[in-house]
Design a binder for these strands. Structure first.
Lengths: 192, 192
DNA sequence: TTTTTTTATTGCTACAGGTCAAGTGTGGCC
DNA sequence: GGCCACACTTGACCTGTAGCAATAAAAAAA
């Protein structure tokens, strides 16, 4: 069941009892997303955090030239949202849509706040989750400033071997801030 | 007093009583850093989180070519550490040193863990702190991928007007992933 | 103050990676 | 099977920004 994925994921960070489980689950609503379907569009306020139980989604913004910049992929076990918009309840600039058919578990801002207040373990869970996310983002930031195109691609392919296979390379390019042609040339060089 | 800066900062996110204050403070140790003095060097395990009560520090890594890449500045009210190294207790790749004479309040990993367990308000404080940091880092990441050199510089100058004044432009360049000459040319263009 | 060190400016040149365009798969689907 | 839509490849060219070097200016040290 899709809720198991979530509970397992939380359990990895904070031990949960059966009682905890049944306390937590009512805060979440399941949602199915079909390939290409939008979860969020630019300008809207992001009202939910979404846990990806199955599938693959992407979050991206569109610049003045109309070019998509993917800032985040979400596959099994990842959370996805326009976090800035969610946290501050302001209109965001991110779009989120599904790359594959996707199963989500969503929690609204009100439920999120209540969950954190009522269940200290969940406050702890999110503190640890964010702690780890920060470490990951730091690394990505350093890579985006320090690394060459080739290093960026290889680093990504290394860190997310499963996901790379499921993604067309133009999406990888967008995520890494490279042109699709550049990825093509890098792959060619690698295949030597 | 330097501890006031910290308590005020925490208080902005979670209300504290006088009793809370005196419960929290013993977990921290003050430390003075003189200009150019190192707080942490590459390869070491980062054992403390440091709150900057006064002054200015920078965190940076050094690439194979010996070039410094600044990933973070810390001035009054900011936390600084090699977070990845701190969280996972592994050797880090960041150096931290003082740009100005600096007053820190430091907390060790053991004290940090204990503080979080014993004082739920502090668990909450750090969850909120990390939540906000994530939003900031997301923005920075998008900027580093989407923006031109000029947009990066102007965005930074806009977001941190106070800090820009205190920084030589080669450090700003390093932070933004640009050459110092590029900053110089941008400033010249702006001055038209 | 004078000296030394650090930082900033500016012109010239080089190159990584972007852009454009044309051509080549390749898989779904009527 | 043939058509359409995408994704990928490859070459030719362009451009923003880096790198270098020499000089000037400013800040720190003595």
């Amino acid at each position: 069941m899709t809720t198991n994925t979530l509970l397992t994921h939380i359990h990895q960070k904070v031990p949960l009892t059966e009682a905890d489980n049944s306390l937590i689950l009512p805060y979440f609503t399941p949602k199915l997303l079909r390939r290409r379907q939008y979860l969020l569009q630019e300008g809207a306020i992001c009202t939910h955090l979404s846990f990806v139980a199955k599938g693959l989604v992407k979050a991206f913004n569109i610049d003045e030239k109309g070019i998509e910049h993917i800032s985040l992929f979400g596959s099994e076990g990842w959370w996805i949202s326009d976090f800035g918009s969610f946290v501050n309840a302001v209109p965001g600039m991110l779009n989120i849509d599904a790359i594959e058919d996707t199963e989500l578990l969503m929690i609204s801002r009100e439920n999120y706040e209540e969950l954190l207040q009522k269940i200290p373990k969940m406050e702890r869970y999110f503190r640890i989750l964010y702690q780890n996310s920060l470490v990951t983002k730091d690394k990505r930031l350093i890579s985006s400033i320090t690394d060459s195109a080739e290093e960026k691609y290889l680093g990504f392919a290394n860190n997310f071997p499963q996901i790379v296979q499921r993604l067309p390379q133009n999406l990888i390019a967008s995520y890494l801030g490279l042109a699709p042609e550049t990825i093509s040339r890098i792959r060619k060089r690698q295949a030597k």
